[in-house]
């Protein structure tokens, strides 16, 4: 039983990974098909995990309602909306008329607004960025200002600004970002390798 509890998950991890790694490097058509199948399976397993996640949220809000907490009314709003979306989605499928209405006028506007609010916070983030803590922050600030000067009224009074901004964007920015990508590559390999071989297994739990 101990094998099933602690070793089997590692064997499954290694086995699934081995097929994918092997078919990536070597021409084994059957394994290539299997690897593609594995990636499709992930979508299916993740869909089951959805039920776990949603179950947790339902439990959280149901608990608040049953304990009659002051926030129970909000919890009720969550559970009622969830029930409506789920019922309509299952009853008339996600292509149905009512579902589309719910999606377009409840789900979509909040999603779009959530993204749009970042505009305001970028402004306050800029304020924070411009509190110069050290020389690195100073360089960051100067570079940001150079980019901001390229548009609108600034570029009229400072015609060279767009050219400077283009240079900053094409040369040091691309170079700096490329180094972040290169620098992380082998760390990704190391971390993934440790996970595949079962040498790093915090995500599989422990204690038993």
């Amino acid at each position: 039983m101990q094998f099933v509890k602690s070793k089997l998950p590692v064997v499954v991890t290694f086995g699934a990974a081995f097929i994918i790694v092997a078919q990536y490097y070597f021409n084994i058509p059957a394994w290539k098909t299997l690897a593609a199948e594995f990636l499709r399976w992930n979508v299916i397993i993740a869909a089951f995990a959805l039920a776990l996640g949603i179950g947790g949220i339902v439990k959280l809000h149901w608990g608040r309602i049953s304990r009659r907490q002051p926030t129970a009314v909000y919890s009720a709003a969550t559970l009622i909306t969830l029930a409506i979306f789920l019922f309509v989605g299952l009853y008339e499928t996600t292509r149905g008329k009512t579902y589309t209405w719910l999606y377009d006028f409840i789900y979509n506007p909040v999603a779009a607004t959530s993204y749009a609010t970042t505009f305001f916070f970028i402004t306050s983030a800029a304020y924070r960025a411009f509190r110069i803590k050290n020389s690195y922050a100073a360089v960051l600030m100067i570079s940001a200002i150079l980019m901001m000067l390229q548009v609108g009224v600034f570029s009229v009074y400072l015609p060279v600004a767009p050219k400077i901004a283009a240079w900053v964007w094409n040369i040091p920015t691309t170079a700096g970002m490329r180094a972040v990508t290169i620098g992380a590559a082998l760390s990704v390999v190391g971390n993934a390798f440790r996970v595949i071989t079962g040498l790093e297994r915090g995500h599989l739990g422990g204690g038993e």
Partner: peptide, 21 residues
Amino acid sequence: VEHIYVGAALGVLASQGYQSV
């Protein structure tokens, strides 16, 4: 709004998840 949206987002995911399975 936040709580309505949580319900809506999870409802959307649940419907889509069920359909895809």
